[in-house]
Amino acid sequence: MKAAIVTFPGTNRERDMRTALKRVTGRDPLMLFHRDALPDDLDLVVLPGGFSYGDYLRCGAMAAQSPIMRDVRNHAARGGHVLGVCNGFQILIEAGLLPGGLLRNASLRFLSMDCHMRVERTGTAFTSHWQQGAVFRSPMAHGDGNYFADHATLERLEGEGLVAFRYTDAAGVVTEAANRNGSANNIAGILSPNLRVCGLMPHPEDLVDPLMGGTDGLPMFESLAATFVSA
């Protein structure tokens, strides 16, 4: 798997992501800064978490205008895979690569805690190593993760199976209490129509080793590694 992690001023979770990718591929992904050019033979581009450009204007709004995002758009247009986690998800939304918006958490509080998610769409490059409906634990840490989309967009996401992950309790039941940030339909992560762009607020890359307290997030990276096994 040829993977690159793209960082901006203020990105701070890129090393966690590198650890997760290296764990499944055995080699370091390419680490790129926003001024670098994106190679055009990549299998996967990852936008990791952090506070790019200090969250100025709106989370992800500045990074979305960065020149390297043109390359990321082209990569996606060629059918390339893109994963955005937390601030990376916010950037994908601001760049128009995924629909909707991410509002301030309904509680107005920065949420730094574990959550549970249910896998709503297996069989993709990001989720194939989970069973449909599997529930897993994941850390999350964000102030603006309250997923919003208009009614028509939500209907389309739900109808076309583009909701990747949903916040649930530990038993996999969709509850209001499990939806800490107030997201529409408890949505934690979504997919593009071609299933190759995935964005989510929680951090599966932070649970990929027993030393981290668990391996709940590992299936995402095993799925990616298996997808690009020949590359």
Partner: peptide, 13 residues
């Protein structure tokens, strides 16, 4: 401004 119908947690607070 937040659109009409979009939750505005700051306004609420």
């Amino acid at each position: 401004m937040p659109k009409a119908g979009v939750l505005d947690p700051q306004g609420k607070a």
